[in-house]
Design a protein around this nucleic acid. Structure first.
Lengths: 337, 337
DNA sequence: TGCCGCACTGTGAACGTTCACAGAGAATTC
DNA sequence: GAATTCTCTGTGAACGTTCACAGTGCGGCA
């Protein structure tokens, strides 16, 4: 309110304007019960009047809390930005954190320099917690973060560290089983798969689920690997068609890769779903946009993000340990299979 | 280095370890020229030895600078997250700012509550500058930010505020002219267009460019409006086909909407490009993924983002005023037109 | 009446920096 | 040889909070 003064009002100004002391203003602002109703009212009025906003730097200096969490994208090549799932995660996380008045700062940790920056930022105590996105199992950042003893949770499990870094994730393995079983039930005989990177839970566990249904040995020659990017989906599809020209179905580990696979199938004269059935994973926005539209496994990404944030906030609030959770997936049938 | 001590090392610890005073350490750390080489070496060594990281809160308390900028997504419905352009902007901005060791905090300003939060954050002096994304001309946030007198730049012009809020943008109007002319040169006779929101520069200026070539009156009935979302592209395409069944080309104001339009055209039995040519705008990742692949106008989004960040940093560094800039577009021909 | 606890309030110190200032030598100038 | 500049250094104060502590008055209870 009032005119834009040069100097920002401080807690002293509020104290003066409301006729109480600094301490009482601070207490009123922070919801301390030992504040008389009269004082509370006076402070509230004075805050509105002066346009006072607490200085987080000063507060954080004494409380050692920052009201900030870092979202770390530990992905080389910045591939993640291309991923529609990332948008969902970011959107939900931003919203959830905002509700608690926690600021979200974005950092990428692609190369060593980035990583050093992230660690320096965290070591400086500039954030209360870390939200890990898409961490690969061998990522050197993980050890560094663990060494920092700062609250950290992952969106999707971190392979090999399930017990160390809490997470919320979709049930990748069961989702893959659902899809594999569906393709079998449709009468498909030669079912291939394109996996994500095997050092991510989505890559590994979806392959596991696929094998659970079809038998590990039986599918040995029917597996190709991608890295979740559209381009890698195309390459893997080419590879599979070269190797097994008469395949009649393919389960692709992400919708984005599936979109690439669809393009390749068309290009090489296969009709979908008549000649080859295609199943995706994610049910991201892209699944409804391909032609034909993609039959896929819906993972509850919004919920995953919500829960991940909740876990992190609990840790920040002082919980010694939190329970990781795995959320159910759902088969969504469209035209591609 | 050393073991993870409970207490974070402070500048005092570094001073002690290097045998100089606080002041000298501070000077050494901040690149002050009045530091002897001996002192500088001692400080550098001590920093490495103690694992010291400056406490930004303390620094910002006295310098009144935070080393942080806010990226504000002022978009109701959080539509922006769906937009592939947004990913590019975010990726580039994150990287550029990181190079200068500036942290990027994300905030959405969809509704009044969000907006209040953003303003409170900025009023609290928690950021040195604001990066505006996709600001619509009537957005109440703009006036509030201007009132704050905090460095702010926009990615893409803000209609009606071109002189007030500096920006970097693509040459929307010229780009649209390129596409319109191209369609004309191909011999298309009934060329329609689907615009973005007319309170954004991309919506308005691309329509202007289109009209520049085809004549405002001539296209009166050939205009439909969308909001950049895929869904709105579908709706607009339906509307156009209902109104002008024999149209033979359509220039769509964004690739995402164009993807929607393509789906509708197929659904309603039009062959692309034989019956209807389709032109997009953006040359985002999606343009190469549609079927047929999209002929579109490439806007140099990475460069736009880079320049936007540069402008903001200049303002933060004390420039009184900076020059907005408009970058050239380029026609990219693929199969859809 | 006196004592104790309760509800509330004010004050000083501390958080970890930077900045302005003053001062010490060394180098340069007249 | 004295005065002046120049380079480098240390010190105290300040930034705006919160927190611990030490009250103050008031009501209830013995």
């Amino acid at each position: 309110m009032t005119v834009t003064n040069k100097r920002r009002p401080t807690i002293h100004d509020v104290a003066r304007a409301s006729g109480v002391s600094r301490g009482t203003v601070s207490r009123a602002l922070n919801g301390d019960p030992y504040v008389s109703t009269a004082a509370l009212a006076a402070v509230t009025r004075a805050v509105a009047e002066t346009g006072y906003v607490v200085n987080r730097a000063a507060r954080s200096l004494v409380t050692q809390r920052t009201g900030t969490v870092v979202m770390v994208l530990s992905e080389p090549q910045e591939k993640l930005f291309e991923d529609p799932n990332f948008s969902v995660l970011l959107r939900v996380a931003t919203r959830r954190l905002a509700q608690r008045d926690v600021a979200l700062v974005m950092m990428v940790a692609g190369d060593d320099g980035d990583r050093e920056r992230v660690v320096r930022y965290l070591r400086g105590g500039h954030a209360d917690g870390v939200l890990l996105l898409s961490a690969h199992s061998g990522d050197p950042l993980l050890a560094e973060i663990e060494g920092l003893a700062i609250p950290a949770v992952a969106c999707g499990a971190v392979l090999g560290r399930e017990g160390v870094i809490p997470y919320a994730a979709a049930d990748d393995r069961e989702g893959a089983r659902q899809m594999a079983q569906y393709l079998v039930d449709q009468g498909r005989k030669k079912i291939a798969t394109i996996t994500g990177p095997l050092d991510t839970p989505g890559g590994l566990n979806r392959l596991e689920g696929f094998c659970d249904v079809l038998g590990r040995k039986a599918v040995k020659k029917l597996i190709a690997h991608g890295d979740y990017s559209r381009h890698s989906g195309e390459a893997a599809m080419h590879e599979l068609l070269d190797r097994v020209p008469d395949l009649d179905a393919v389960f692709v580990g992400s919708d984005l890769m599936a979109a690439g696979a669809l393009a390749v199938l068309r290009e090489r004269g296969r009709r979908v779903p008549e000649d080859v059935a295609v199943g995706g994973f994610d049910d991201s926005a892209i699944a409804g946009s391909t032609h034909p539209r993609l039959t896929t496994v819906r993972q509850p990404l919004e919920q995953v993000a919500t829960e991940t944030v909740r876990l992190l906030l609990e840790l920040i609030d002082g919980a010694d340990t939190v329970e990781s959770l795995v959320l159910p997936t759902e088969l969504v049938t469209r035209e591609s299979a």
